[in-house]
Amino acid sequence: MKVSMTVNGKSVSRDVEPRTLLVHFIREDLALTGTNVGCDTSSCGACTVLINGESVKSCTTLAVQADGADVMTIEGMASEDGTLHPIQKAFQENHGLQCGFCTPGMVMASYSLIKENDHLDEKAVREGLEGNLCRCTGYHNIVKSVLAAASEMGA
C-alpha cells in the first residue's frame, strides 16, 4: 500500500505492508531512529511522536493510519540550524535525561502536554507524563525540565 505524509516538514511517500506500524515506518523506511521502541504492550512511551500536533504512541498506530497526516518526530524538533527547541534545551539545562533512551518520547509527550495546558503545575506534569516511563532519572529532573520549558514557552 502506498502511504504519503509529511514528516518533520518534508513530504514522504512509500509502499508499505498494511501491517506496518508507524514506528517501524519511521525507524526503518525513513531511517529516523530517534524514535525508540521500549516495549511491546504500548506501556512505555519511548515511541511517542506527534500526529497533527497531538502526541501518539507510534507503536500502536499503523503507518497507513497516518496517511495524509503531519507527523513530527524528535528529529524535527530542533531548528534547521541545529538550535534546540526550548523543551530540548530545558531537558539539558535541568539534567532531565541520563541514558537518553526515553528522552525522545518524553520530549514529544511534553510538547503536547505543554501545548494543551495553559497552567501546568508539578502534579499536572506528573500525571500528564504517566504514560512515559523512564528508568534512569526518577522523573525529578524531567518534571523540572517540563515546568521550565512550559514557562519559557509561555504556558
Partner: peptide, 18 residues
C-alpha cells in the same frame, strides 16, 4: 551541563538497534 545531551535530545544518538 552534560555534553552527551544534544545528540541524545535530537535523535542523533545511535543505540545498537538503530
Amino acid at each position: 551541563l552534560r555534553r552527551e545531551d544534544p545528540k541524545l535530545l535530537s535523535g542523533e544518538a545511535r543505540f545498537t538497534d538503530d
